[in-house]
Amino acid sequence: MSLYDSFLDSIKGMRSKLKNDPATMDNVSGALAAEITVIVSLLLSALLMSHVNMFASVFLVIILAVLLISNMPLAPKIKREQDDSLEKMSFYIIVTLGVLVAVIYWGLKYV
């Protein structure tokens, strides 16, 4: 009896662990599609750099490969960062505004 209970508990524990694991979200096909889209477009965007500098592009692709492999389930992270909370939205908005102003205003002085 007790063996059965502990077996059940361990199964339950495994299931709850699996639930928290971002790699096994229930919408698997959607997450996979999102993951592949993100990876492909990131790599292609890195290849776009080759119009500016070939070495920079190769360097970027290698860095991206390392970063992508080390952070592999990207889709849940992307989803978490884009939920409907006002804080995250306004954070990204302000960051974008700040980066745009800084990069363009000070960047264009050296063009």
Partner: peptide, 14 residues
Amino acid sequence: IIAMVLSVSMAAMQ
């Protein structure tokens, strides 16, 4: 590119 990729990948997960 950011708009296309982020929005469409988010759409895939809804």
